[in-house]
């Protein structure tokens, strides 16, 4: 990208278009890396430490959230030296409870907000939704952008909304969900990433997990490119969170390869990279078990989530 003042007008006019075929080819190559056992073992532990353990369902109960919080810092008591997950991700109404359950741990509480998952609500509602979560102690806010406005070309609206929510977040870090499954093209993904970053996102996140396709490698790669270009232009690091659809260890390791080769080692920690997932943790634990004992494990021996 040409050096220029990063303002909205410049971004809208100059956000690069994405070569879809090229991106897919590049992503295919990330998946053909041979990862040796020792690296795999370290990689799996890193994956665990980057997980945002998530439950975002209408049927969520305090009991379910409690159980998940317990799991967040007791991933598997039979295995020593496992890291904790990075955060738990819940609805605003569960933030207070999650916060209480996680006292004394380093695990963050992330809350979705802004009328998640559709985002179809007036700004005042989105603001009070966000403030409610922050007041209850949320460390991170996962907001959704207004996809309808974005697709009809009202980029100013999208930008201003993100900026307003960012202000309401206070010290909480803001993750901006683009819901790439609804954005149709990689060009749109890139543009939405650029707008979100400009508006003050601390993290950009692929999906709500409610729309298929959720996180894919091409989409994540495109967003990482936006992050890299922003870093090159301004020196500021933005985090990345693919969410939804990453449910096995092998794929998670491929994502780490992609992060390393696209933005670099500085992003390989849970301050700048997260996985939004619910079933990934168990699969990683099963692989770690396999690495330790040499025998393939079974889902029967891990918690149901």
């Amino acid at each position: 990208m040409k050096t220029m003042v990063p303002n909205l007008k410049n971004i809208i006019n100059h956000s690069p278009s994405i070569d879809k075929v090229g991106v897919e080819e590049r992503c295919a190559r990330f998946q053909s890396r041979s990862i040796k056992n020792e690296s795999k073992w370290e990689g799996l532990k890193m994956v665990l430490s980057m997980i945002d353990l998530t439950t975002l369902e209408g049927k969520d109960t305090p009991g379910k959230v409690k159980q998940m919080c317990y799991k967040a810092h007791h991933l598997n008591d039979n295995m020593s030296d496992l890291p904790n997950v990075a955060a738990v991700c819940v609805y605003p109404s569960m933030v207070k409870l999650a916060k209480k359950e996680l006292i004394g741990t380093n695990i963050k509480v992330a809350s979705v907000s802004t009328a998640f998952p559709s985002g179809q609500a007036p700004l005042s509602v989105k603001l009070s939704d966000t403030k409610f979560a922050v007041d209850n102690g949320a460390d991170e806010i996962d907001m959704v952008i207004s996809r309808g406005e974005f697709l009809s070309g009202d980029y100013n609206f999208v930008h201003d909304e993100i900026a307003t929510i960012k202000e309401a977040c206070g010290h909480a870090r803001l993750k901006v969900i683009l819901e790439t499954g609804e954005l149709s093209t990689l060009d749109n993904v890139r543009l939405a990433s650029d707008i979100a970053i400009l508006a003050g996102a601390d993290f950009i996140k692929t999906s709500t997990g409610k729309i298929s396709p959720a996180a894919t490698m091409p989409v994540t790669y495109t967003m990482l490119q936006a992050i890299r270009d922003h870093y090159v232009a301004t020196g500021k690091m933005i985090g990345m969170k693919p969410a939804g659809g990453i449910s096995n260890s092998k794929l998670a390791l491929h994502y780490l390869v992609m992060v390393k080769e696209t933005v670099g080692d500085e992003w390989l920690n849970n301050t700048y990279f997260r996985f939004g997932a619910s079933s990934l943790a168990n699969d990683v634990l099963m692989q770690i078990q396999k690495a330790k004992t040499g025998i393939y494990s079974s889902a029967d021996y891990f918690s149901i989530d």
Partner: peptide
């Protein structure tokens, strides 16, 4: 070995 030890 794999067949006989596999937990699943």
């Amino acid at each position: 070995e794999t067949f006989s030890t596999h937990m699943d």
